[in-house]
Simulated scan of single mutants.
Amino acid sequence: MTRRELAHWARQPVQVVVGLVFPVMLLLVFGYLIGGGRGVSGPYVDFLVPGMLALTMAFGLEGTMLAVTQDLNKGVVDRFRSMPMVSGTVLVGRAVADMLQSAAGLVVLIGVGYAMGWRPGGGAGFLAAVGLLLLFRFAMLWVGIHLAMVAGRPELVQAVQILVWPVGFLSNAFAVPASMPGWLGTVVEWNPLSATATAVRELWGAGAGGSSWAADHAGVLAVGWPVVLVGLFLPLAVGRFGRLKG
């Protein structure tokens, strides 16, 4: 199933390239055009790049959602019914393929960050931060897959995808929660994306930019939130897929 999804890349290279280039454009826009980082201590690029990497792990789910709904509507799932495979294998294959593309996107964005002057800490902390980013992506993929199963049709994917935007922009990807109104800062600090961004900044030697329980325990939340999301949405998606086949 994973090889099947990867084979689609060769037939849809534009979609793959756009998925890699769009986060780079956002990083350059916020780094050079908007920038500023109100309340950020130290170079803004050290704060921005980890936030953009976390934001990228939350965005770009429409490709996954479209692929799932297209399979459901083109009869592909029906052809798999006669094959000896575990229920949900199609979904797992899609998730693995998307994780490979997400890893490639991280490499590209990290390279752009280096070109902008960003210098993270190395060693085990660097690898741990990358692991947290990929863990968050894995969780978001299963959220997207479940939403695609609920939507059922490709034309509804765009409407469902809009739900991801509040998660992305109600976060500390671009600004410190302390610079926001009190209630909004609290919401932002408890955002799963914010937990990942804060933990990654700490591992890479940048300031956390917060003074709350959520900020002080960002590492715990950066692991806890994805585990909860995967534990909730993976069984829901696989269960719904199994019922469709039944």
Rank of each mutant, 00 (worst) to 15 (best):
A218T: 06
V228E: 08
A218Y: 08
V188Q: 08
V92I: 15
G168K: 15
M25W: 10
W165R: 03
V200H: 03
W204L: 10
T2N: 04
M116F: 12
V45S: 04
M85K: 02
A97F: 06
G42P: 01
P120D: 07
S82K: 04
A222L: 09
G224Q: 10
D46L: 06
G31P: 02
M65I: 12
P192L: 08
L236C: 06
A129F: 05
L203K: 14
P226R: 03
Q101W: 06
L91D: 06
I110W: 00
V220M: 11
V176S: 00
M83F: 09
R94Y: 10
G144E: 09
G51F: 08
F241R: 15
G123Q: 07
G144I: 11
G209P: 08
H146T: 02
G242C: 04
G117I: 04
W225F: 14
S82H: 02
L232W: 13
V14F: 08
V238D: 15
A115Q: 05
G239M: 02
G219N: 05
I145Y: 08
L53K: 03
V108A: 10
G168W: 13
P120I: 09
N191A: 02
V108S: 05
L100V: 15
Q101C: 08
A103Y: 01
E5I: 07
Q101P: 01
V112K: 06
P23T: 14
L48D: 00
H8M: 13
G144V: 13
V238K: 13
M149Q: 12
V77D: 07
M65G: 06
F169V: 06
T198E: 07
P50L: 03
L106Y: 10
G152W: 13
A54C: 15
E189D: 11
W9N: 14
T69D: 05
V228Q: 04
G168I: 15
L127V: 06
T69A: 04
L156Q: 13
D78R: 13
G105I: 00
A129H: 00
L106K: 02
G131Y: 07
L134F: 12
V96Y: 10
P120A: 00
F22H: 02
G144K: 08
V228C: 14
W225L: 09
V14Q: 05
G105F: 00
V160Y: 02
L203V: 12
A148R: 09
L53P: 01
L72P: 10
M1V: 03
A175M: 14
V167S: 00
M1W: 06
M1F: 08
G168L: 12
L135M: 12
A128F: 00
W183C: 13
H8G: 13
L20N: 04
F241I: 04
A215H: 03
V228W: 15
L234C: 09
M25A: 12
V107D: 11
T89R: 14
V24G: 04
L134E: 14
L141A: 14
V18Y: 01
G122T: 13
Q12R: 01
L236I: 04
A197D: 10
V14C: 01
A58Q: 01
G51S: 04
F233N: 02
V40M: 04
A151W: 10
V29T: 05
Y114N: 07
W142M: 07
V112P: 03
T2S: 09
R94E: 05
L6H: 07
G123I: 03
L20P: 05
V18F: 07
W9K: 01
G93H: 04
M180Q: 08
L48N: 11
V77W: 02
R94Q: 14
P43I: 02
A124C: 01
